[in-house]
């Protein structure tokens, strides 16, 4: 167990020290989400009606959840690259804790996700977002976001180990995550959608999580969504983390 913790930290450190050296990657965590936020607020904001809320108050929880879900992309790309470069072979030949490479990867995503949350929140506050929440609720929202992002990092970890190239990881990831985020309550109220999409959107974990965030941050009626969202995140984690670790153990044809 001590080895697992220390090896995980070594791997996470390895992933993070590169950040300041790869400005393109840093842009992906900062400028890109801000650009999306501004586009949505100023381009679609006027056309989308969100009864009871300013669009920016409606959007911030949604767009942060979407961003967090994509944060794990770095894990898919990074693991796939490590696989092809033989780094995974080296790691697997070392006497390190078996899950540490994946645990370290996903842990470094938590750091970059935190960075994204801060950047989006600050931008949001500048363009008019305001909390309608107590400090514990705000904090609860941050914890939920990080947990949700962490769960998705494991989904991406599995993806990165399964696909044949980083390009394949990108397109498969987009195909899987894009519809999930758009057919949800993240950007528009779901009662504006056609019936079939509404049915899907209602059970979509993104809707549950976004609604939970709205309950925590802007005072939307919570229903069961807050607990439901935590349950979803934990369930995704419980399914995908063991799958990814099992795949890692036999990476590259065992």
């Amino acid at each position: 167990m001590r080895r697992l913790v220390s090896d995980t930290l070594v791997v996470a450190e390895r992933n993070l020290v590169r950040l300041p050296r790869a400005p393109d990657l840093l842009l992906a965590f900062t400028v890109q989400p801000v650009m999306f936020l501004l586009l949505f607020v100023y381009v679609f904001g006027g056309a989308i009606s969100t009864p009871g809320y300013d669009y920016v108050d409606f959007l911030i929880p949604g767009i942060i959840v979407q961003n967090i879900a994509f944060g794990g992309f770095v894990t898919a790309l990074g693991l796939n690259e490590d696989l092809h470069k033989g780094l995974i072979d080296r790691f697997r030949s070392l006497p390190m804790a078996r899950p540490a490479v994946l645990a370290g990867r996903t842990l470094s995503d938590v750091v970059t996700n935190s960075l994204s949350i801060v950047v989006l929140l600050v931008t949001g506050l500048i363009i008019g977002f305001s909390f309608d929440a107590s400090p514990p609720e705000i904090l609860g929202g941050v914890v939920l976001l990080l947990l949700f992002g962490y769960a998705f990092s494991w989904v991406f970890a599995l993806l990165g180990l399964l696909v044949s190239s980083p390009e394949a990881a990108s397109s498969l990831g987009f195909i899987a995550v894009f519809p999930l985020t758009f057919v949800s309550s993240a950007f528009v109220p779901i009662d504006s959608m056609p019936a079939a999409l509404q049915a899907f959107a209602q059970v979509n974990p993104f809707t549950v999580t976004v609604d939970a965030m709205r309950a925590l941050w802007v005072g939307a009626p919570a229903g069961d969504n807050v607990w439901g969202a935590f349950a979803w995140a934990l369930a995704i984690l419980a399914v995908f983390a063991p799958l990814a670790v099992a795949r890692y153990r036999r990476a590259a044809g065992g």
């Binding site: 390895r14 020290v17 470069k85 080296r90 790691f91 390190m96 540490a100």
Partner: peptide
């Protein structure tokens, strides 16, 4: 099997710590 984004020293230090 080396990490291109790390320096030579960082690569070796990482491996040592993983041992």
């Amino acid at each position: 099997a080396i990490d291109d984004n790390l320096t030579g020293l960082e690569n070796l230090t990482m491996v040592g710590r993983l041992y």
